[in-house]
Design a protein around this nucleic acid. Structure first.
Lengths: 211, 211
DNA sequence: AATACTTGATTGATCGATCAACCAAGTATT
DNA sequence: AATACTTGGTTGATCGATCAATCAAGTATT
């Protein structure tokens, strides 16, 4: 099992999907940049979509080591870890002149009729990401309040990350990212200040607003 | 100038871009569904991308009447208007079995090398949307605090909308939308409670009934 | 008659995918 | 130890479909 070729395909596809998106990346693009021949690619992958599956699996399996570990070394405070992660995305934006896009978020919005396997992998990437945030929130339970809906807030942090990048990228202006993060900061500050009753409890009391 | 054909092209393209995305929609798709012939389309539009420009201009010019007016009739409270708008998106998710995606957000993440004109229109759509939110925040200035960064919070609301839809759509689960909105609710609740110049501690308020 | 619009066949490029042939390193058989 | 056969991978020409776009000839409108 020569996985060198397979890996080269995967890494190249990862690059290209991030640069140009899934649909705008042709199989020929992948072949050209990875110096792999058509038949070899189809030897390892049944089709283009299975390359995407491989890429998404790679992202999913690398969240801890590739994404979190680099930005969390030296950061012990659980809340600061959350904002250190957001800082990591900010660094990507800086390095790419606000061209960076979250690869998962971009794919999630680009793929309109996702194969179940693809959709599950997108969801799994989101889940692992926000679970990592939730662990931080658990560790900061005493400061944020024990009755806080930590799952909801973890998903909210993911939302802010995705939305902040989306806007910064669209406007090509880091200010949009920073302002979004600043509001999230203020949210945490308020949580810490009056932690006794400001949490998100059940949704039942809010539901009447929607209908 | 027969703009019936032009409009039919525009409306059809709008539908298809929303359903399948920009790249996955072929010119032939637009021609087929709109019952327009190839030459007619290229008579009104230099190319496919210019159809996209037309669609984005249509969205931009219709935000007030098409998007806001329907969900704001009967809602006077400025803060409730914000959540009524989010409720409108929730309704779309319900109607589409959590398949709905914000057309602007999806395009913003799908188009990786945007023509300046396209990018400007995406940005203009975001700007008009968050400006409408900002007006609500201005109107609620007394309740939220005068020193609030209302622009930042308006962009934050946009972020939450986009992120909440992204997650609900990826998971095909409305709960992700609701939890995100609930956290935003709690943010507003905390803002109202801790607003500058008010004696929060003196008030004998029931913490659980802020809405 | 001039302009505006429609018709639909047609272009060349590019798309994802297939295929037979080839090859080197095992493994089994004699 | 020599031979036959399998496995896992590579090569690159080639397929039909589809892509966005073109264009000459037509009809309708003014």
């Amino acid at each position: 099992m020569n996985s060198d070729t397979r890996n080269r395909i995967l890494m190249t596809a990862m690059e290209l999907f991030w640069e140009k998106g899934y649909h705008s990346t042709s199989v020929a693009d992948i072949l050209g940049r990875s110096q792999v021949h058509s038949g070899s690619l189809y030897h390892f992958f049944p089709g283009k979509q299975d390359v995407l599956v491989g890429v998404l699996e790679f992202y999913r399996d690398g969240i801890r080591e590739q994404l979190l570990a680099p930005v969390w070394t030296g950061v012990d405070d659980p809340v600061e870890r959350i904002f250190a992660l957001l800082g990591g995305y900010r660094a990507h934006l800086v390095l790419t002149d606000c061209t960076y896009g979250c690869p998962i978020g971009s794919l999630a919005l680009e793929i309109h009729e996702p194969d179940p396997k693809v959709r599950d992998l997108l969801a799994a990437n989101f889940t692992n990401w926000s679970l990592a945030i939730e662990e931080c929130l658990d560790a900061a339970q005493d400061r944020l309040g024990a009755d806080l809906d930590r799952r909801a807030l973890a998903e909210f942090v993911l939302t802010v990350m995705e939305g902040a990048i989306m806007q910064a990228r669209t406007y090509r202006d880091l200010g949009y990212f920073d302002r979004n993060v600043a509001v999230l900061r203020s949210h945490f500050a308020m949580l810490e200040r009056n932690r006794a009753g400001s949490s998100v409890r059940g949704e039942s009391e809010d539901k009447r607003t929607w209908n």
